[in-house]
C-alpha cells in the first residue's frame, strides 16, 4: 500500500488540518527539549580543598599554615612542644614554610640513631665550679661557659635531659641527632650564681650531682633553698654520695666490712637527704673522682640505681655500659677548639 493522494490514510492526514497541528506540536516539543539544560563541556569543577591534615595509623601529613611552628605541631600531634626537632629532622627542614607539606611520625623511626655507616653517640659534659674572673682545672670562667653554651646553640646541638638520654640508651626513644647532656658536680654556689642563669637563658636542661654534705649554704656552697629553686626550674638533682669519698678505694685503716658499710652509707644517706629535701627518688650516680669497681656497680644495681657516670673521656652509644658511662670534664683552660673535641655525636663502623 503506497502512501499517495489516493490512499485513505493520506486523505486523513493531509486533507484535514491534523497534519499541521501534529507537525507544529512536534516542532514545539523539539524546541522545548533543546531548551532543557544541556550537557556542559568538560570543564572540571573544583570543589573546596580537602582538610589540611591527613591522619594515618603511624603518621600525620599536615599542610603548614602561617600560624604553625615546629613546636605547635609537636604539641598538637606529639603532645610535647619540645619535640619540634623530631619533625624537623624527619622532613630535613630547619623551619616551616606556609603551604609546605610535612610528615609527622607518631613513633620513633630511628631508635639508637643507627645508619648504614655508623651510630649515634651522646657526649656528657661535666663541670664543677664557675667563676667570673678565674679559671683553673676545675673552674670555668663565666665568659667561657657562655661561649660554650652559645657554641652549642649556634651549631645545632640540642641539650637533652638525663631521662631523655636513658630513653635512648634503653633503645626505646629517639633523641636529636646532635644531642648533648650537661652535668655539674658537687654543689658549689657558683653553679647557682653563674651557670644557672646562662642555662636558663638558653633553656638548657642540666643535672646537678650533689654530694649532700657540701650543701651547707656557706659563701661558696649551695644551700637547700637554692637547690630547690633550681630543681623547680628544670635542673635535675642526682646523687654524688654523701661525703665525696672514692667508692672504689678502701682506706688502709678500714676492714673490708667497714669499707663496704661506708659505701652503703654514702649511697643511703645521700639518697635519703635528697628524698627528704626534694621529695624525689634518685636514679643516677656520678662516682666521686669517677672511680668505680665491680663491687660498687653490683651494689648500685641492687639498690635500684639505673646508671652511673665516670669521668672517663668519651661519648655514649645506646649499647654502652650504663654503670660505666663516659663523661668529659670541661677544664677551665679549654679553648673552644678543645671543647669541640668532646662533642663527637657519631661513630663510624670500622
Amino acid at each position: 500500500m503506497r502512501f499517495h493522494p489516493g490512499n485513505p490514510f493520506f486523505n486523513f492526514f493531509f486533507r484535514g488540518r491534523c497534519i499541521w497541528a501534529l507537525l507544529a506540536s512536534l516542532f514545539c516539543l523539539t524546541l522545548v527539549s533543546c531548551a532543557l539544560p544541556q550537557k556542559k563541556t568538560a570543564v572540571p569543577v573544583v570543589k573546596p580543598p580537602a582538610s589540611n591534615t591527613r591522619i594515618f595509623d603511624d603518621f600525620v601529613a599536615v599542610i603548614v599554615q602561617p600560624k604553625d611552628t615546629l613546636a605547635s605541631l609537636a604539641a598538637t600531634y606529639l603532645h610535647d612542644p619540645s619535640k619540634g626537632w623530631f619533625i624537623a629532622e624527619f622532613n630535613e627542614i630547619a623551619a616551616l614554610k606556609p603551604g609546605q607539606v610535612v610528615i609527622i611520625l607518631l613513633k620513633p623511626y630511628n631508635r639508637g640513631g643507627l645508619s648504614p655507616s655508623g651510630y649515634q653517640t651522646v657526649p656528657v659534659l661535666c663541670y664543677h665550679k664557675f667563676s667570673k674572673t678565674i679559671s683553673d682545672r676545675m673552674t670555668v670562667r663565666e665568659k667561657d661557659f657562655e661561649k660554650q653554651m652559645c657554641f652549642l646553640h649556634e651549631n645545632g646541638y640540642r641539650v637533652i635531659s638525663l631521662d631523655q638520654l636513658f630513653g635512648f640508651l634503653d633503645f626505646k626513644d629517639q633523641i636529636p641527632n646532635k644531642s648533648v647532656v650537661i652535668t655539674i658536680d658537687d654543689g658549689w654556689r657558683s653553679t647557682y650564681d653563674i651557670a644557672y642563669p646562662i642555662l636558663k637563658r638558653y633553656n638548657y636542661p642540666a643535672t646537678l650531682f650533689v654530694y649532700t654534705n657540701l650543701i651547707t649554704g656557706s659563701s661558696i656552697t649551695l644551700s637547700w633553698d637554692l637547690v630547690k629553686r633550681m630543681y623547680a626550674n628544670g635542673i635535675d638533682m642526682q646523687c654524688h654520695t654523701k661525703t665525696h669519698r672514692s667508692l672504689h678505694w678502701k682506706r688502709e685503716e678500714e676492714s673490708f666490712r667497714q669499707y663496704f658499710d661506708a659505701v652503703q652509707t654514702e649511697l643511703n644517706e645521700s639518697t635519703r637527704v635528697l628524698k627528704k629535701q626534694l621529695n624525689k627518688g634518685v636514679r643516677y650516680l656520678a662516682y666521686p673522682y669517677g672511680d668505680t669497681s665491680h663491687l660498687v656497680i653490683e651494689v648500685l644495681k641492687k639498690r635500684g640505681f639505673r646508671a652511673a657516670f665516670t669521668v672517663k673521656r668519651g661519648t655514649n652509644p645506646f649499647f654502652g655500659n650504663r654503670y660505666r658511662l663516659f663523661r668529659s670534664m670541661v677544664y677551665g683552660s679549654y679553648t673552644l677548639k678543645d671543647f669541640k673535641r668532646n662533642l663527637k655525636v657519631f661513630a663510624s663502623f670500622k
Binding site: S33, K39, K47, P49, A50, N52, R54, I63, V101
Partner: peptide, 22 residues
C-alpha cells in the same frame, strides 16, 4: 524529540576534580 528527552549516558557524566592538596 526522543533524543532530547533521553537521559544522558552515565559515562558522559561531568568530571568533578577534587584538587588534592597533598
Amino acid at each position: 524529540f526522543f533524543q532530547a528527552c533521553a537521559p544522558p549516558p552515565p559515562s558522559r557524566e561531568i568530571p568533578v576534580v577534587r584538587k588534592d592538596p597533598f
